[in-house]
């Protein structure tokens, strides 16, 4: 024989699945939500998304090439996913430097300091978002009104910030309850309408506004077997049950479960962020515990805390518990002697 034959341990075939395919699958799943954000926030959304993706990919490349001296692995698509997720968590009106700082935090601190893909304990996009939320609280909680391509691209000064932006429904409810209003009157007086939540014509960050687009993404990822149902379903179910109990207890001081599920990025978090491979538990049982944890913490923050919104914090907190869950929650072993 002219060339050498190959010898290797079994198995000798591979499914053809790859990191790239999975990551680009997630990107495809995020497309509907992205298009909805373009529709409602116009050029601002496009600019935030592009800048966020470009800076995430750019920082990953620069850090790998010049600081870690590794072969850059930006083609695997994970930086693109982080970039889009970060953009999904930002309002469309942010000045460029805030987005770049967010991307640097997400990739530099959230991912690369821990050794890059596969080693980060916390979801990088959320690290970026939470940093920005704490550093630029006004900028990060003022959302432009959804006016399609008429939405102002950049809102340069703090003076007119209030004129062209609004709060999220969750913010309105929180504010209203603080002022002693009842849920019914808050809903009436702010014109809160569930069809808008579903279709996306509400204020909010890019990715959280349209429930239907996020659900399309979920269905796509489930069909393509990119993720399993365990995490999204357990988060949503926990929130539904928990808020349902409170609502049943007093519907005038607690919003109903559907309101909680459709607003404030619960679906975005449950579908795209909590399911991040690296930072979520490794077996179905653990994933359900993780989902329940996120659900409970989210509701606690929303209902009893200062912030109107708690999904990001809940996911980050449960990310911290992931190694513990992996250590002590084991899959059901075959032939376990009970």
């Amino acid at each position: 024989m002219s060339k050498l034959i190959t010898v290797s341990p079994s198995p000798h075939i591979h499914s053809g699945q790859s990191v790239e395919k999975l990551m680009y699958g997630v990107v495809i799943a995020m497309m509907p939500a992205m298009l909805v954000s373009f529709y409602f926030f116009g050029l601002g959304a496009i600019y935030v998304t592009l800048l966020s993706v470009a800076s995430c990919v750019g920082f990953e490349y620069l850090i790998q090439k010049f600081i870690l001296k590794q072969k850059p692995s930006i083609t695997d698509g994970s930086a693109i996913v982080t970039g889009i997720l970060l953009a999904f968590n930002l309002p469309s009106s942010l000045p460029p430097f805030i987005i770049i700082v967010g991307a640097l935090l997400a990739i530099g601190v959230g991912k690369m300091t821990f050794g890059g893909l596969g080693n980060n304990p916390f979801n990088p996009a959320l690290v970026g978002r939470v940093f920005l939320l704490l550093s630029f609280p006004t900028r990060m909680t003022k959302y432009p009104l959804a006016e399609g391509f008429n939405t102002p691209l950049l809102i340069p000064t703090n003076d007119n910030l209030d004129a062209v932006t609004g709060a999220t429904p969750l913010g309105l409810v929180k504010e209203g309850l603080k002022n002693g209003e009842s849920i019914t009157s808050i809903f009436q007086h702010n014109g809160i309408n569930y069809t808008d939540f579903f279709m996306g014509s509400i204020g909010g960050s890019l990715g959280e506004i349209a429930a239907f687009a996020l659900i399309i993404g979920l269905v796509y990822m489930l069909i393509k077997k990119i993720i399993t149902w365990h995490i999204p379903v357990s988060i949503v179910a926990t929130i539904a049950v928990f808020t349902g109990i409170l609502w049943g207890f007093n519907p005038e001081s607690y919003a109903d479960p559907l309101f909680h599920i459709l607003t404030g990025g619960v679906l975005l978090g449950a579908i795209f962020m909590a399911t991040d491979y690296v930072t979520s538990p490794m077996n179905p049982k653990g994933q359900i515990y993780y989902g329940i944890g996120i659900g409970v913490i989210t509701v606690v923050i929303r209902v009893f805390g200062v912030y109107p919104e708690g999904v990001s914090f809940a996911i980050l907190i449960m990310n911290g518990f992931t190694p513990l869950i992996n250590r002590y929650v084991k899959p059901r072993r075959f032939g376990k002697i009970s």
Binding site: L4, I5, T6, V7, S8, P9
Partner: peptide, 17 residues
């Protein structure tokens, strides 16, 4: 060389193959 080894590159694993 008479063949090309394409598995995890440790001597222990190669020698088990």
């Amino acid at each position: 060389k008479t063949s090309h080894y394409d598995g995890a590159s440790t001597c222990a694993i190669t020698s088990s193959v």
